[in-house]
Amino acid sequence: MSSPGPEERAATTGLGELLSGVTRDLSTLFRQEVELAKAELTESAKQAGKGAGMFGGAAVAGLFALLFLTITIWWAIGYAIGNAWSALIITVVYAIVAAILFARGRAKLKTVRGAPRTVDSLKKIPETVKPGGTR
């Protein structure tokens, strides 16, 4: 004996039972999609973590390269004018670079606006739909 087809089930099943089945199926689909998203995001986060670790290692190596380049320049200038004066020159150069980077960074931070479109759209949500709103 074969199971009834969709038309037969629709004719013999009540509307409440059909809606219950649809709701159950949508709930199952939603849970499965959330689980898939979690799995994908976990994998992406692992890859991002590895990439961030590589960037961190590159930053440390770059810092050491800059340190030894600075020492090399300090000693090279030191042969011409003395180590104390060459160290002062290197310090002033780094202070100028730091001041320029600070000023540019500060200017960039002043242009950050946050999420103005999101704030605007959230203001349009009626009070009845907001959590804790009156119904």
Rank of each mutant, 00 (worst) to 15 (best):
M1E: 10
S3C: 05
S3N: 10
P6G: 07
P6D: 14
E8D: 01
A10H: 00
T13S: 02
L15D: 04
G16E: 13
G16Q: 11
E17P: 05
L18K: 00
L18N: 00
S20H: 13
S20R: 05
S20T: 13
G21A: 07
V22S: 07
V22Q: 14
T23G: 04
L26T: 04
L26V: 08
L29K: 10
F30A: 13
Q32P: 00
E33V: 07
V34Y: 04
E35D: 14
E35Q: 14
E35T: 06
L36R: 15
K38H: 10
K38N: 11
A39Q: 10
E40S: 02
E40R: 13
L41A: 12
E43T: 11
S44Y: 09
K46V: 08
Q47Y: 03
A48T: 13
A48C: 05
A48H: 09
K50L: 07
G51R: 05
A52T: 06
A52L: 13
G53P: 04
M54W: 03
M54L: 10
F55W: 09
G56S: 04
G56R: 00
G57L: 14
G57M: 13
G57Q: 07
A58M: 13
A59N: 12
V60F: 02
G62E: 03
G62C: 03
L63T: 15
L67Q: 09
L67K: 10
F68T: 04
F68N: 10
F68E: 03
T70M: 10
T70F: 02
I71P: 06
T72S: 12
W74T: 15
W74L: 13
W74R: 08
I77S: 12
I77H: 03
G78Y: 00
A80L: 11
A80C: 11
G82P: 08
G82S: 09
N83L: 10
A84N: 07
A84I: 12
A84S: 09
W85E: 14
W85S: 03
A87T: 08
L88R: 04
T91C: 07
V93Q: 00
V93D: 01
V93Y: 02
Y94R: 03
A95I: 10
V97G: 01
V97N: 05
A98L: 05
A99E: 14
I100Q: 02
F102W: 15
R106H: 15
A107C: 09
A107T: 11
A107S: 07
A107P: 05
K108P: 03
L109D: 10
K110Y: 06
K110R: 13
T111A: 11
R113S: 02
R113G: 04
R113H: 11
R113M: 15
A115E: 15
A115H: 12
A115G: 10
P116K: 06
P116I: 06
P116L: 01
P116M: 04
R117F: 02
R117S: 11
V119K: 12
V119F: 05
D120F: 14
K123N: 09
P126W: 02
E127K: 12
V129T: 03
K130L: 06
P131S: 01
P131E: 08
G132F: 04
T134C: 04
T134I: 04
